[in-house]
Design a protein around this nucleic acid. Structure first.
Lengths: 348, 348
DNA sequence: GTTAGCACTCGAAAGATTTGAGTGCTAATA
DNA sequence: TATTAGCACTCAAATCTTTCGAGTGCTAAC
């Protein structure tokens, strides 16, 4: 059964009121909206219908109604009008900073501050190709490998070696490594390439193995999805999220960040839509023990096509309108920053 | 008034019982300890004395007694016998890992897992002198500076430049920088040195400024006190720490880490005593809003003399004995790791 | 289709009652 | 003089009771 206009209006009023007050909404409250001109009895009839259809429920017999997940979903998809583009305050939230890491930390912080929810931000994800390798001798037993990958992300690796090398040897290695590896990603490094390099390195092929290991480790590390979080303690502000033990589990997820990465990987790049906004409500969301939460994520893009995610975790009773507009704002700002200065510096 | 032996015994029993049960301890409970052979009435008299002296209080008239801060302090200083050195299980808690950062993160995690309290760990603090600088050209507009400071801590800095340099210029800069800066710490770099370098660099003195800025930034960053935390959510397990708002404030401190650094700076290096253990009880502790917590810290040492701190934050009702022995254990293990492999690699 | 009216439900808040662990004091005892 | 038995007293916590009112569903009238 389709909802007629009046039912939609009433559902919208119920949800909007509930979002504001947090109390179950009764029929009299709704009947008082004077553009409706209906008695509470009529509203009650309509409410009974809406309940039967699964959009709202009563916490107990003699209480008002609150939205179900289905109700929220309908609200977000059909009833909630977003702020007009013009209305959105284009306030500059972000301070420009050089290093990617600091920038994203800042994004997480600003978002938490503006929404009062727990926030998460991932670094942009793209194919990490090697741009430049610099091997230097730190002392007799150790080499330092500095690997710069696409996007100016820099990784260091200390490599212990058995054989003593002189400076000339190190120079040779540098040339060898850069010749073969520049522009390569992890997947490009295959046995064939390794053997070719070993052949050229002659007597030093054992050391090459050690160096290789270091480089692979570093690039692997660069490929790890980095997650920045902020405002996790905001979760404590929302008692509806659950009792202490549930809250605690949630907070642990934010401390670990492990599970969050699964969540964010699912959201990223599902669509080409720019600033793709995704809303998970209650049971919909892919992480365990988060049935009482809603998650809203947005995707930002770098000019080179790399994408990252910013998102918030909060209670189902959440100001979706505000959250969506704040997220849009921030992604626009981020896109802006990235397009204006090509290559914000990264550093791990 | 000095406490006589019997009062000491009774105080010890009260505190030990309270640590175990968390309930106020009544006179009958104590009188049942059969090595005491005293009636509850006698205990009551002694308890009244102990209360007058400020070691214990009643939460309300008809309740048993709980320790005051003064009581805990006396217990920790005089009554609690630590586990015999031999008794301490010398279990190896730490997995060996290469990078300092990962090692310390692991320490924080292990400690949290073993104690069920919130833990904090600082990296060792010492005078960071420059060991080695390597400048390389990434592309026409960017230089990469790699700065290795004492302790194999590596910092990278991307330096944007206006003028185009060829490889020979970069080589010259490398020699210049290393000649002047090797062995220097931040304080050693003064105007005189800068001017001398500028003189030698001739036409490139403007670029030198840019490079300098990058290096100073990097060394500054290396000097920042890094703090690793774990198990912050354990705070939720201890309701005695306070209501939601207090708990929340505490958790925020752990998210920020800012304030924690003040705390840890105070504890570090107060004494030469190896594995110096420090206990702050309730009001004693130097951080605001932590009156209901106790903090226990221990100092570890690297062979070169650098020291760092590991510590835990928990409720005043804490198993001090266990915590102290766990901390001692871990610092011993850490010292061991550092002494066996000189120079665990650091990386920021 | 809408509404006024009414009996009914049930959670939340406030008050009353009971229970028991624990105390302080006093007077007797060793 | 130190210890103890005994007893009246206190008070938090648990449990039950009462009251209150917001909100409902249903019915009959408009």
């Amino acid at each position: 059964m389709e909802l007629d206009e009046r039912k939609k209006t009433i559902l919208k009023l119920i949800i909007a009121t509930y979002l504001e007050t947090g109390e179950p909404v009764g029929s009299r409250t709704i009947s008082k909206f004077n553009d409706l001109n209906l008695s509470s009895a009529t509203i009650r009839n309509e409410m009974a219908d809406l309940e039967e259809l699964g959009y709202i429920v009563q916490p107990h017999t003699s209480a008002g109604r609150i939205p179900t997940d289905k109700g929220y979903r309908f609200y977000v998809d059909n009833l909630m009008e977003e702020k007009e583009e013009a209305e959105v305050e284009k306030s500059t939230l972000l301070e420009r900073v050089d290093r990617m890491e600091l920038l994203l930390k800042q994004v997480a912080k600003v978002l938490a501050y503006n929404t009062n929810y727990a926030t998460l931000v991932t670094a942009p994800k793209y194919r990490k190709t090697i741009k430049f390798i610099q091997l230097s001798k730190v002392d007799e037993e150790t080499l330092l490998a500095v690997i710069v990958v696409e996007g100016n992300l820099i990784k260091n690796q200390i490599i212990p070696i058995d054989t003593i090398l002189d400076n000339e040897d190190v120079l040779k290695f540098n040339i060898l490594l850069n010749t073969f590896l520049q522009g390569a990603s992890l997947e490009d490094i295959n046995l064939e390439m390794i053997n070719a390099m070993k052949k050229q390195s002659g007597e030093y092929s054992v050391i090459l193995d050690q160096i290789f290991q270091g480089i692979v480790d570093a690039v692997n590390e660069a490929n790890e999805l980095e997650i920045y979080t902020s405002g996790a303690t905001n979760i404590l502000k929302y008692p509806e999220i659950g009792d202490i033990s549930k809250t605690s589990e949630l907070l642990e997820k934010f401390e670990d960040k492990e599970e969050l990465s699964h969540l964010l990987e699912e959201t990223t790049g599902n669509k080409d839509d720019s600033h793709y906004i995704q809303v998970y409500i209650g049971e919909e969301n892919p992480v365990q023990n988060m049935e009482d939460c809603s998650i809203v994520t947005a995707t930002y893009k770098m000019p080179e096509g790399a994408t990252g995610t910013i998102g918030i975790v909060g209670p189902k009773r959440m100001d979706y309108k505000k959250v969506v507009s704040t997220l849009k704002n921030l992604t626009i700002e981020l896109d802006d920053i990235f397009s204006k200065r090509k290559g914000v510096n990264e550093d791990g």
